[in-house]
Write a protein that binds this DNA or RNA. Structure first.
Lengths: 146, 146
DNA sequence: ATAAAATAGTTTCACTTGAAACTAAAAATA
DNA sequence: TATTTTTAGTTTCAAGTGAAACTATTTTAT
């Protein structure tokens, strides 16, 4: 078996390169991590979410989300508000600063993705999306069996 | 922008899930890490390689490779031999134990990959390979510009 | 209503990580 | 040849990581 031809290896190498590449756009310029970017992007799509909701949508574990919320709040990019239904939770939203930040970073992230995808045809992009989605479901199915 | 539709995010989530899933096969059963698996697989394909060569082929950084070599040697899965051309380097190969291990783990890794891919058609698999390869070259191209 | 189980989120702890500094050897240059 | 630069590999250090234990609250079951 050649490691090169092994899908888990290929995915890992590509994903790491892409993450590292795109992280440059927001780490070096704005000093935010991938975790922070994910949370900001999610809150930018929809505000007033709890850590639990963000944990699910970001696919990160709750420890990581908890730390990310703390750091984003310290840097004044998000604010919290008591959650009337559940006193354990809080609802977070972007501050004006957080909104400004995400609106500056987002176009760069989108441009990076666009440059990445311009090597593929429209059909290939669509087919790739289908494959990734199918693989995602499949890996869930496989791992929950174990 | 929806995070869900963002390729770097999709790749990261899928890659992490796949890595975590497959790692179970060899972590829980044989207590070897992904780094160790990669080196063993590479040495199984071709013995007498230096850390430098393995660094390139495994796409891991040299610190990680250095530590992986040390741990594999401590557990007696690989052995080293002085390198006549360059006294800084050594050539590594699998021991009998290392060979036995990789030959036990490899079929499981291949079976995992096969199960993963069985959700895709032959054409899709081929197209996916093309896309991953193209994206790989593209990300190299993009990041070396920066 | 009360006890038990589950859940949201945080903290602790032991482990992993990679950048930077380092050592030793090789290659390039003067 | 002597000096400088580069390279192979290791160590150090500071930061990041997640499993497990924890607190506080909510839900479920009795």
């Amino acid at each position: 078996m050649e490691l090169n031809k092994f899908l888990p290896y290929q995915l890992s190498v590509l994903s790491n390169k892409v993450s590292a590449g795109i992280a440059k756009y927001y780490r070096q310029q704005y000093n935010i991590s991938v975790s922070q970017w994910r949370v900001l992007a999610l809150l930018s799509d929809k505000g007033n979410q709890t850590a639990k909701e963000l944990t699910i949508k970001s696919q990160m574990d709750k420890v990581r989300v908890s730390r990310t919320m703390k750091s984003l709040e310290e840097r004044n990019f998000i604010s919290q508000q008591a959650c009337q239904k559940d006193k354990r939770a809080r609802r977070y939203k972007l501050t004006k600063e957080g909104d400004a930040l995400i609106n500056e970073v987002k176009p760069k992230a989108i441009a990076f993705e666009k440059r990445l995808l311009e090597t593929l045809s429209t059909n290939q992009v669509e087919e790739l999306q289908n494959c990734l989605q199918a693989l995602n479901s499949q890996v869930d199915k496989i791992t929950e069996e174990i």
